[in-house]
Amino acid sequence: MRKIVARYRFTWITLGGLFILEIVNPHLGERAVVTIGYSLREMLLVIPPTFLLIGLIDVWVPKETIIRLMGKGSGLRGIILALLLGSLAAGPLYAAFPVVAVLVKKGTSFRNVVVLLGAWSTTKIPMFLFEITSLGSRFAYIRLVLSILGIILISMVLERVIDNREKEDILQSLASF
């Protein structure tokens, strides 16, 4: 019981914030509750396939396959695969971390992890389609191209900035999750 309280500390703090909002401004508080309910429902609707795929990869895909496809020597193919995986998966960015965890456990390289997270946050396909309809295809395509270039650049810079020992630590903490 105490464990659960401790694990959900962050949740309790935000709920405290919600409670304060409710007291200070009940009207806004009520709208916040409605919004939270809506996003929870939306999230629980979108998220299951992503986690099913995590389980499936975990149990069925052999480590050698992932190493070959997304490991250290995977080169351009690894980058493209990471971009595609990140753009195709569903769920908010925080759903990306468990996906990354299982991929790291199977031998995905540090750089491809960074690429996948970058793609997950900026080049999601449903979001891209939506961007086209609301901001026009010129805006959307230019941003897509710049985002992809940015993601690859970031992954290369991080690859250099973070030293090997720290990379190992990061990958380990990701995988042990």
Binding site: F10, T14, L28, F51, I54, G55, V102
Partner: peptide, 30 residues
């Protein structure tokens, strides 16, 4: 085993996930 691991991965991010959703809800209206 697949289902068990899928659930475990989900349950792992649940505390942060709830927290973020509540925080976003507050930010959205404020």
């Amino acid at each position: 085993e697949t289902l068990r691991r899928a659930w475990k991965a989900f349950e792992n991010i649940l505390p942060q996930l709830f927290g973020v959703v509540v925080l976003v809800g507050i930010m959205l209206v404020v």
